[in-house]
Design a protein around this nucleic acid. Structure first.
Lengths: 211, 211
DNA sequence: ATATTTTTGTTGCAATTGCAACAAAAGAAA
DNA sequence: TTTCTTTTGTTGCAATTGCAACAAAAATAT
């Protein structure tokens, strides 16, 4: 996996670039409303520190987390497709965010700063990473049986490594949400799969048997 | 929707740029194998003319189309997440494709050609477009009921316009594939929805009633 | 015009899942 | 420790869906 953590952000010298790219830094307090989508604003948000969630609120008032944002994450209107629902960004902790004017990035850099191309490369990497995550989720959701979704989830998490087990970074409740299935049905299926000796379960570790 | 058709491709003057970016043009005949994913090759493919499909072949030998590529489309390893399956690009017609070396794009342009930034901007637009499409699909697949998937599909297709009906660009068989549901179940649900006066169906046109 | 392929339409039945409801266990807060 | 909250575990039942199998209609090819 690519790493775009806090260190690289400093490398970008975003602040230094503010004379060639339109960058604004804003601070938000916990629970504050950051942005709403759907207007196709030509702005990219860039989390410098803190945590935020992209959440969707359906017409019947239910909220679901689309993506969790941590330092290094970016967000933009690529999520605005959630047509009839509303998509917002809400800070979960105190948060520092850069807003970068999208179209200006590609203008020839007037001061020929060495960071300009780095910024672009970095943005492209982040977007590509988002893309990969989106395709992973699609891969999981194209399966309509819970068992298949679990297996897809495991093998995606394992990835190219030759491990045979994964450890959930969150609760089964949250796994159910990610897989878009009912939690109790997920537990039932996990139990079945263990009985059929397809997987082994210890705490939050799932091991693929006879793989 | 953004438009990145044949005209813009010429604007890019990709051929002119081959002295600053590593571009190779290749021709493929109908049915030919173009590329396989999973190697995280740092290459972007760019369809100049013709049609191709990104297809996935599951371990049990079934093939499914991930994305249809037309002139202006790009493809890269963002699809390589399909971990245990194989992903290929196959030409459906005679096809001209540019392969652009990914990392080199971001190096400072040695000849300061005016097209370099245009290329980057264009690529970013295309990737963003892919991203939007992916999120649309996720939005549909997060619903587990066929009815909800149909309604999500309709409202996404309608988008921001204030139309109340859509016309399918393909068969119901293909719609079922896109929605990841059984075709006969889709037909059954459409019939139900018509009986309950939620939609109206005429040929391939679906109209949302009392919306 | 005729033959062939693809799409549409329909249905019974079995399998899978979501839902509701509850209790136990684990973790966090007071 | 004690209390409160979240997570895990379980089950019956109803609803939804996939599957299989078939016939009619439409589209395409010969």
């Amino acid at each position: 996996m690519l790493d775009h953590g806090q260190k690289k952000i400093k490398d970008l010298q975003l602040e230094v670039m503010s004379n060639c790219v339109n960058i604004k830094k804003k601070n938000f307090k916990k629970g504050e409303y950051i942005l709403s989508f759907g207007l196709r604003q030509k702005v990219i948000g860039f989390i410098l520190s803190g945590k935020a969630d992209i959440i969707r609120i359906t017409i019947d008032g239910e909220a679901s987390i689309i993506q969790k944002l941590t330092p290094g994450s970016i967000f933009n209107d690529a999520f605005s497709c959630f047509s009839q629902d509303s998509v917002f960004v809400i800070s979960k902790t105190d948060t520092e965010i850069f807003f970068i004017d999208y179209p200006i990035i590609f203008k020839n850099c007037p001061v020929k700063c060495p960071y300009h191309y780095h910024l672009i490369e970095h943005l492209l990497n982040l977007i590509t990473e988002n893309n990969i995550k989106a395709n992973e989720k699609i891969e999981i959701l194209t399966h309509n049986k819970i068992r298949d979704r679990i297996l897809a989830y495991i093998s995606i998490t394992i990835g190219t490594s030759n491990a045979t087990s994964i450890t959930l970074p969150y609760s089964f409740t949250e796994l159910a949400e990610y897989l878009c299935v009912d939690r109790s049905s997920l537990m039932r299926e996990l139990k079945k799969m263990e009985e059929e000796k397809i997987i082994k379960r210890e705490n939050k570790t799932l091991t693929l048997l006879n793989a």
